[in-house]
Amino acid sequence: MRASNHLIGALNFLTFLLSIPILGGGIWLSSRASTTDCLRFLQWPLIVIGISIMVVSLAGFAGACYRNTFLMRLYLVVMFVVIAVLIGFIIFAYVVTDKGSGRALLNRAYLDYYLQDYSGWLEERVASNAYWPKISACVRDSKVCGRMGRSINSVPETPQMFYLRTLSPIQSGCCKPPTECGYIYQNETVWNIGSGAMAANPDCSRWSNDQEMLCYGCDSCKAGVLASLKKSWRKVSVINIIVMIILVIVYIIAYTAFRNNRKMDNDEPYGEARMTKAQPSRINI
């Protein structure tokens, strides 16, 4: 029995450690929200799941140390719910980030982003009039476009140098006009109208050299935010899948150890049923 309790205690300590990367992923998304993604509601499910696993693991650890059956039952029930919620969150994260990616360009290292390439719950939430003004203001306040400036030996980079840069989705979608508009490069965030006709893309007329406006009102900026979110969520989801698999294995072992404890509490030898025949059979075959 003591060995079984030690096993359950060790497993709960392991699940406590596993909650740290989940909570860390939520905190990382929170830090991303304050700098680029600017969607603060997205990190809370991970933070809540991470804290829940921590609390439940401590309850299971205490139940194992003090042989408290109530705490152990509570641990198993709540941990099952937490695992189910974590699985649901992983599926949700992949579903809402399934569509959309940047488009490759001729003679450009960076990608262009188009809102029509995205759809679903996340796209509707980002592009909605209720959320986008706050998101765009957050992107502007993060100064991500202002930090794009680069010079070599005090000489600003040339257009050819800029075209070979790998820009983040936010930088490409919000800090420059779409390539198809035909704007002429002056510097990273200043572009002049070309001599040819601009494309029918509405973002072509939305671009402004005003550093407070740029393309923050463009659909390409919304698409850049969505692409950045997709990248962040996929990174966190990989960690969550690994943690979820380990949690399921730990839960199965803990449940088996708990059942073993109950059998021994009932004076039932391990591996044998409590019910036996009152008398041996007289029939021999």
Rank of each mutant, 00 (worst) to 15 (best):
I152Q: 14
N153R: 11
S154I: 07
P156L: 11
T158C: 05
T158V: 11
P159C: 04
P159F: 09
P159I: 06
Q160N: 01
L164Y: 14
S168F: 11
P169A: 01
P169H: 06
I170K: 00
S172N: 07
S172Q: 02
G173I: 02
P177K: 01
P177R: 04
T179G: 00
T179Y: 14
C181H: 02
I184W: 07
I184D: 12
Y185K: 01
Q186D: 12
E188V: 02
T189W: 09
G194N: 02
G194P: 05
S195Q: 15
G196P: 00
A199H: 12
P202D: 09
D203E: 10
D203I: 07
S205T: 13
R206C: 01
R206Y: 11
W207F: 15
W207A: 02
S208Q: 01
N209G: 08
E212M: 11
M213I: 14
Y216W: 08
S220V: 02
K222D: 08
A223L: 05
L226H: 08
K231Q: 15
S232Y: 04
S232L: 11
V236G: 05
S237W: 11
I239T: 12
N240F: 11
N240S: 15
N240W: 13
I241K: 04
V243I: 12
I246R: 00
L247T: 00
I249H: 03
